[in-house]
Computed example of a mutant assay.
Amino acid sequence: MKKGILEGIVVLDLTRVLAGPYCGMLLADMGATVYKIEVPVKGDDSRAFGPFKNGESVYYMNFNRDKIGCTLNLKSPEGKELFKEMVKKADVVIENYRPGTMEKLGLGYDVLKEINPRLVYGAVSGFGHTGPYHQRAGYDIVGQAMGGLMSTTGWPGGEPTRTGTPMGDVLGGLNLSIGVLAALLHQRMTGEGEKVDVSLVDSVVSAMTNINMIYLATGRIPERIGNRYESTYPYDSFKTKDDSVIIGAGNDKLYGKLCDLMGEPELKTDPRFTAVKDRVANHVTMKEMVEKWTMQYTVDEVADLLNAAGIPGCPINSIDRVTRDAQIAEARNMFPEMDHPVAGKMRLTNNALKFANESADPSRPAPTLGQDNDEVYGQFLGLDAKKISQFKTSGVI
């Protein structure tokens, strides 16, 4: 197995689609032994999500690399008992069923903690396991809508917009990972297990920090403002000869550098723009003045001038540019190549973790459905080949 900073941690991953699998992916990338447990025959819903390469879902393969794959029917009595045996040997269980589903199966946290008092149980769902909405179904778009993100994303006068990536799910997966790691630390210090309950909606609300505070502090409801930032300016996209460039002059020092770079040092003492709050209040005029300068150059020329002066600035990269960028793709290895037994060679999206002494880069392709049944039930649980064959025939695994 892959070594890493979480080597020796055993995780049972019952999750499907994105938020839960993203958590399992991070734990696996960091070296935990993650057993991806799927429904026999069908597997994770995302196996049917495109795009596909040689018939295999690229969506599934990205979020389930570095995991050991097995199938198990948790609705069958034999399947429940097999899972309980696995729980005895595990450190962590993660699931993203609708709240109450695991309890209906007889495998809720109250049952599992009696089997393994040290167990860390992580659950991510649309609305969490408490409250009047806890039984509601929830996908990423529900999290973004209910949590307020869509209401503040887009352009003035336009429709509320979900982010281009499923940010609600990603935030849910990240928060579940953080909670599981904190509970593991608690487990190591006290010997006690814990339940981690994460909601997609809560995850989005938590990420809306400064936006929420505008309303809580002032009563003003934040609206869609495009690429501009509510808290400082110039911090926006600006037109150039060929496209738009990003400038993030987020404090007085950087603003002063920008004024000098534009050849207008007098703007540093202009009372309309002296302080951050003044530049925010007069952002329309400020944008016009910055664009008089940026329109003289191309995006890449402006970006080069900004970075040479120590001012944050960059092009708005399309994904093809991201995957070719020397910093992102090469130096930070954000698109490592992997050889899948069916899909063949392909590039994945890496996690953002870099450690000084351990690798968190993916090293094992996602499993085909039930690929590791013999390893899981033979080596991990110690069943003989005859028993495993019987379970396969009867549809238990």
Rank of each mutant, 00 (worst) to 15 (best):
D45L: 15
G219K: 06
P160N: 00
L105C: 08
A275W: 13
M25S: 09
P77S: 02
E114M: 10
G193S: 04
D252H: 08
P362F: 06
L27C: 13
R321I: 10
R162Y: 14
K84V: 02
R279A: 04
V93R: 05
M208W: 04
G79E: 03
L18S: 01
P156Q: 14
L185W: 15
Y139G: 07
Q144I: 07
G378S: 11
K257L: 15
S231N: 15
D320K: 11
Y133L: 14
L184N: 04
S244Q: 15
W155Q: 14
E38C: 01
L176S: 01
A48M: 15
T190K: 09
Q296I: 11
V124T: 02
N175Y: 12
C23H: 06
C23I: 05
G55M: 05
L105T: 07
A281F: 01
P315N: 06
A281L: 06
Y121R: 05
D374T: 11
Y22P: 07
I37Y: 07
I316N: 05
E266Y: 04
R98L: 06
W293A: 07
D110A: 12
T218K: 05
P336F: 09
N351Q: 03
M286R: 04
L171D: 02
L185M: 15
R224C: 04
G138E: 01
M208A: 06
V290G: 12
P160V: 02
M334A: 06
N62S: 14
A281G: 03
P222N: 03
L14D: 01
M150A: 10
M334P: 00
G250Q: 08
S206F: 10
A182N: 11
E264P: 11
K253I: 12
M208V: 04
N333E: 14
D325K: 12
G106M: 03
K277P: 10
A217L: 13
N210A: 12
L200R: 02
V201N: 00
